[in-house]
Structures are given as C-alpha cells and as structure tokens.
C-alpha cells in the first residue's frame, strides 16, 4: 500500500464522514463548517489526480466564496439549533430509506458496467494544468465561456431584483 492509496482512503473517509455530519448536525453553522471540510477533501482528490487548476478553483470558489455567502445568510437570519423545525422521525426514516435504495440501485448497476478494471491515473498527465486547460477553454470552448459570462450577469441582476423588493 503506497502513499497515494493511503491518501486516497484518508481523503475518502474525510469526505464521507464530514458529508454525513453536514446532514446530521443540528446547527446550520456547523453544517457549513463540515461542508467546507468536505470541499477540502474533494480538492485533495483533485490534486491527487493532478488536476491542480480544479483543486485550487474548488477551494477558492466553493470553500472561499460560496460557503462564506451561506454563512453570511445564516448569520443574517440568526438561525440556531433551537429555532430549527424538525421533521417527524418517520419522515426522516423514509428519507434515509429512499436514499439507501438509490445507493443500492446505483451500486447494483455498477456491477454490470463495462468500466470495471479501468485505471484512473493518479499523479501523471498534464491535462489538468492551467496551460492546457486555458488553451482548450479559449479555443474549443470559447462560445460556452462567453455564454457563461452572460449567465453570470443575469444571475447578478436577478439576485439584485429579488433582494430589492
């Protein structure tokens, strides 16, 4: 068992454990903090797969910007564990059973898949570097890139319009 496998299992356990804590913790602020830990673990996976650009962007955009926005909204509303309404426990159990059924179906579908035995190459290849990604982004994918700028503008206008009234 070499170092990349140890890192893979450690990061996977960290991601899964903190994702479960996001769902079960009562206080929304704690949920946000656990979600940030999940994003750090996923960024570790990206860096392990030599996708450095996506790892850093994941940290900056998700853990840096989006989660700060969530924390800001939670603090603006002054939510805490006492004021949060809880579903009754049969509905919670039904949700967990439904999610477990989906897990079962997906794992069973994977048993028949053709991808079994293929290797995801860790630590090699340079398609995740900024140079190659930037070249592809500004040649093959330049139209979706420009359209996403329009999407950002409309999202900004929409947020202002919704928040104003």
């Amino acid at each position: 068992m070499d170092i990349t496998q140890v890192l893979f299992y450690a990061l996977s356990a960290m991601a899964l454990g903190s994702a479960i804590m996001v769902v079960i913790s009562r206080n929304p602020v704690h949920s946000v903090l656990w979600l940030i830990i999940t994003f750090f673990a996923i960024s570790g996976h990206y860096i392990l797969m030599n996708a450095q650009f996506l790892g850093i962007v994941n940290l900056i955009v998700y853990a840096g910007a989006i989660m700060v926005l969530f924390l800001f909204v939670i603090m603006l509303m002054n939510l805490n564990a006492e004021t949060e309404p809880q579903k009754n426990k049969w509905l919670k159990l039904a949700g967990v059973v439904a999610g477990g059924c989906l897990l079962l179906v997906l794992v069973a579908a994977l048993k028949q898949a053709e991808v079994k035995g293929k290797i995801a190459m860790l630590g090699t290849g340079d398609i995740g570097l900024i140079r190659n990604l930037g070249k592809a982004l500004f040649t093959d994918y330049v139209v979706p890139f420009e359209i996403s700028s329009v999407l950002f503008l409309s999202a900004m206008v929409g947020a202002v319009v919704i928040g104003k009234k």
Partner: peptide, 16 residues
C-alpha cells in the same frame, strides 16, 4: 455514489 446519496438523504430528511 456515496456522496451523492448522502446529498439525496439530506434533501429528503431536512426541513431547513
């Protein structure tokens, strides 16, 4: 798959 199903469970089981 595990992360996705945890997300599904969170959507179904929480009210916040």
């Amino acid at each position: 798959i595990a992360l996705f199903c945890i997300g599904i469970v969170g959507v179904l089981a929480r009210r916040n």
